[in-house]
């Protein structure tokens, strides 16, 4: 802003205060309008139907070297997980109703376009939003191949991701809580002895008392 326009600004403000009535809500002057075209690098979201998927594509074969270089150190060469990071492939659908559910892409994810969306926006973990769209397609192809959902040499592109049926796509339903109705009983609410459990029942993972911080 130039010095002369700064000097004019207060005068303009006074003029508006006189012209407009206090309490009127007109936000039209706040902010800057922007054209959708200017958002090309920001408008990266892909919804579950695959709207907004970019052109391009790649096979698992093409994606494998990228995956092994940039993903395998945390996710394992075959998506089995590493260094404490959970597996992203190899989960069984049956496990979801068992004691140790395996939530992998093939067993749990609702939609395939969302895999592209997530890899493009958030991966690789240490340098997100640095992959080309074709590299993202290749990594997605490699993961889908590990889940036996596409062939090793099959082109994975926008059309394929839109059409790919995910095994767990009907595995979700929207919030229907409250699902528990408790009563506000005040006296003699039950007549058995309470069964009290006070130690970890799955493994020995109790951390005990809160550690004390150093004090000076």
């Amino acid at each position: 802003m130039s010095r002369s326009s700064m000097c004019k600004a207060p005068l303009l403000g006074i003029a508006l205060a006189i012209a407009g009535s206090a309490g009127a809500a007109d936000w039209g002057s706040i902010g800057t309008t922007i054209a959708e075209e200017d958002l090309a690098l920001w408008d990266i979201d892909v919804n579950y139907l695959g709207d907004n998927l970019p052109p391009g594509g790649a096979t698992a074969e093409e994606g494998e070297p990228v995956y092994l270089t940039k993903c395998a150190m945390c996710h394992g060469d075959f998506g089995e997980g590493a260094r404490g990071y959970l597996p992203l492939a190899g989960g069984s659908r049956d496990s979801l109703s068992g004691d140790r559910p395996e939530k992998s892409i093939g067993s749990y994810w609702h939609n395939a376009p969302g895999i592209f969306d997530y890899v493009r926006r958030a991966m690789p973990f240490f340098s997100p939003q640095t992959l080309s769209d074709d590299e993202v397609y290749g990594i997605v192809a490699y993961m889908l191949n590990m889940e036996d959902m596409v062939e090793y040499d099959q082109l994975v592109d926008a059309d394929l991701l839109r059409d790919l049926k995910m095994p767990n796509e009907d595995g979700f339903w929207s919030d229907d809580r409250p699902d528990v109705q408790n009563a506000r009983c005040m006296q003699d609410c039950y007549d058995v002895d309470p069964e009290v459990k006070g130690k970890a029942v799955i493994g020995d993972v109790s951390v005990g008392a809160v550690p004390k911080a150093d004090t000076d």
Binding site: D45, V46, N47, Y48, L49, R93, D94, L96, S97, P101, K103, Y108, W109, H110, N111, G114, I115, D117, Y118, A122, G171, F172, W173, S174, D175, D176, R177
Partner: peptide, 28 residues
Amino acid sequence: DKPWVHREENSRYTELMPDGKARQFSFY
């Protein structure tokens, strides 16, 4: 005019139930 159903609303932040199905969009 549609939900996106992104990673944080299906792989994460969904409530897996004993029958293997999961509640989604349990916001409150």
